[in-house]
Design a protein around this nucleic acid. Structure first.
Length: 311
DNA sequence: AATCGCTCCAACCGCCACCCA
DNA sequence: ATGGGTGGCGGTTGGAGCGAT
């Protein structure tokens, strides 16, 4: 339905609105959104729905492009946007889906309820690519992809399983930097970054790992970190309950290969691990892994250490 | 206290596909 | 067939926040 300019609802009040519409023509606002702008956008969409973003921007009295309004709504103001830390399940899902689809952020986001493509893209760039950089690998290199497949993803599965078994509480699965005591094989670089020096050889198996879906109650799923601006939506809209569908349940909906037991289509979790090959690959990279966030932490090191000891 | 460097993420940009007159 | 408008997507950037020096 075309929204004609003369059918605009006056959101800001008479003459002021006319003035604003005139200014808008050649005075497009950019940069961070104000609370007032957020409120105007939310209010307008609440009454008229979304779509036709250019005319929506005009009619809502916003000095923004339609694109900007659309982005602000979809990535931030939408009531079912789920903010806060990326959970372990979500990390696993992102790694898995990215291995299948590459940088298809929007497609990946469809399988993470409440998460936006922008958020996933940012996660990938800030966390995953950081690790590739630390390994001195190209993020698209076989070495790095195999490291993800054979080390990170199985480890994530383990941690999900452990947390689920121990507590049955998915809130324990949200990202956090594990800090424990130092270890002989954990180096600190000049900047104090905790690092794992990869062993010379390593072999072991990673069998069929069964995962129990964690508790999906809203209390456990909401991981806080709502910005002051987006908090506006909380008081304006009731929170959408569907935002708390668990990512795990979605794994089963993705299609070919997912059978509900978290056996990935690419078979990551069923393969016998050729860790020697991995180590070789890591040697081709730097052989040093950063512990500074939750893809690698001291728990991971201890996990690998257990396997080393068995050799 | 000031400065610097780094991380993270909200927002922008450019391109492309689709729709419709 | 075509050209303008629009929406969607992926890549990139600017700046706030924060810790280190």
């Amino acid at each position: 339905m075309e929204v004609k300019s003369n059918s605009c609802i006056d959101m800001s009040g008479g003459e002021e609105d006319d003035q604003m519409n005139m200014i808008m023509i050649d005075d497009i606002r950019r940069g961070p959104w104000t609370v007032e702008e957020d409120f105007a956008l939310i209010n307008y969409i609440a009454h008229h729905g979304e779509g036709r973003w250019n005319s929506l921007a005009r009619c809502a009295g916003l000095k923004r492009t339609g694109k900007s309004c659309r982005l602000r709504w979809l990535n931030y103001l939408r009531p079912d946007v789920r903010r806060g830390n990326i959970t372990l399940e979500e990390q696993l899902l992102i790694l898995e889906l990215h291995s299948r689809w590459g940088n298809r952020w929007s497609k990946i986001a469809q399988h993470l309820p409440g998460r936006t493509d922008n958020e996933i893209k940012n996660y990938w760039r800030t966390r995953v690519q950081k690790h590739a950089k630390q390994l001195k690998c190209d993020v698209n290199s076989k070495q790095f992809k195999d490291t993800m497949r054979y080390l990170w993803m199985p480890r994530l599965v383990e941690r999900i399983q452990a947390a689920s078994t121990n507590t049955g509480d998915s809130s324990s699965l949200t990202t956090s930097t594990t800090t424990t005591t130092n270890h002989d094989d954990v180096d600190m670089d000049n900047s104090g970054t905790r690092k794992l020096v990869m062993p010379k050889t390593f072999s072991g198996t990673y069998g069929n790992t069964q995962i129990n879906p964690p508790d999906t109650t809203e209390e456990n799923s909401r991981t806080t970190a709502v910005s002051p601006v987006s908090g506006l939506t909380d008081c304006y809209y009731p929170m959408n309950q569907t935002q708390n569908q668990d990512s795990f349940q979605n794994i089963n909906k993705i299609g070919d290969g997912f059978d509900g037991s978290l056996t990935s289509p690419s078979g990551y979790f069923n393969q016998t691990m050729d860790f020697e090959a991995i180590v070789e690959q890591n040697n081709q990279c730097s052989g040093v892994i950063d512990f500074s966030d939750n893809l690698w932490n001291v728990d991971d090191f201890l996990f690998f250490q257990q396997h080393f000891d068995r050799m």
